[in-house]
C-alpha cells in the first residue's frame, strides 16, 4: 500500500534528525504544526501523540467515538456503520479493510495496544516515536514474541476445516 511506503520513507527521512527533533524543542513545535495539517487533512488526525496508524490499516482509530484502539465494539450496525454516529461508517470496519490491504504492517492489527497516554495529547507523534516516548510504560504490556505469535492469525483463519 502506498501509505505504508510513505510511512517507511518518512521514518527513514526523520531518523537522522533524531537529535534535533527533541521533545519541547522548537523543532517539535514545527513538527506539531506539520502533523496537525498533514495528518489532519489525510487522516483526520486527533493528535493523540502516539500514532499507531500503520498498525491500524492507515485509518486513525482515535476517530472512533469510543477511542477504541484494539478493535470494533459490539455495537456496529448491520450496514457497517457506527453505533454512536449512525451516519458515519464504523472506523474499525475501515481499519479492518485497510489492514487487509496493507501487506507489510496489516498483521499488526492483532497487537494489543496499550492504554492511551493522555499526557501526550497535542504533542508530536514522530518526536515521541523517535525517542521511544510513545511506547514507554512501567510494566510489560506485550512482548515481541507475543506479538509475533498473534500476527499470523490475522491472515490465516478462514480456510475450511
Amino acid at each position: 500500500m502506498l501509505l505504508e511506503w510513505i510511512y517507511d520513507l518518512t521514518y527513514a527521512l526523520l531518523k537522522p534528525f533524531k537529535r534535533f527533533l527533541k521533545p519541547d524543542s522548537f523543532a517539535e513545535k514545527a513538527m506539531i504544526s506539520i502533523e496537525k495539517v498533514g495528518k489532519g487533512v489525510v487522516f483526520d488526525c486527533q493528535m493523540c501523540g502516539q500514532c499507531i496508524l500503520h498498525s491500524t490499516g492507515m485509518v486513525c482509530s482515535m476517530n472512533c467515538p469510543k477511542n477504541l484502539r484494539n478493535g470494533p465494539c459490539g455495537g456496529v450496525r448491520l450496514n457497517g456503520h457506527c453505533e454512536v454516529k449512525p451516519e458515519q461508517a464504523c472506523v474499525w470496519v475501515k481499519i479492518y479493510e485497510g489492514s487487509i490491504a496493507s501487506p507489510k504492517y496489516g498483521g499488526e492489527i492483532m497487537w494489543l495496544q496499550p492504554p492511551v497516554n493522555r499526557t501526550l495529547q497535542d504533542t508530536s507523534s514522530w518526536v515521541n516515536l523517535l525517542h521511544g516516548i510513545d511506547q514507554k510504560m512501567k510494566t510489560v504490556w506485550q512482548t515481541q514474541e507475543d506479538k509475533d505469535a498473534l500476527e499470523p492469525l490475522f491472515r490465516g483463519s478462514n480456510e475450511k476445516e
Binding site: 478493535g71 455495537g75 474499525w92 494489543l112 498473534l150 492469525l153 483463519s157
Partner: peptide, 13 residues
Amino acid sequence: VPPYDWRPKRLAK
C-alpha cells in the same frame, strides 16, 4: 455484527 471475519480474530486478541 460486521466485520464478520474480524470477530474470531478479535476473540484471539
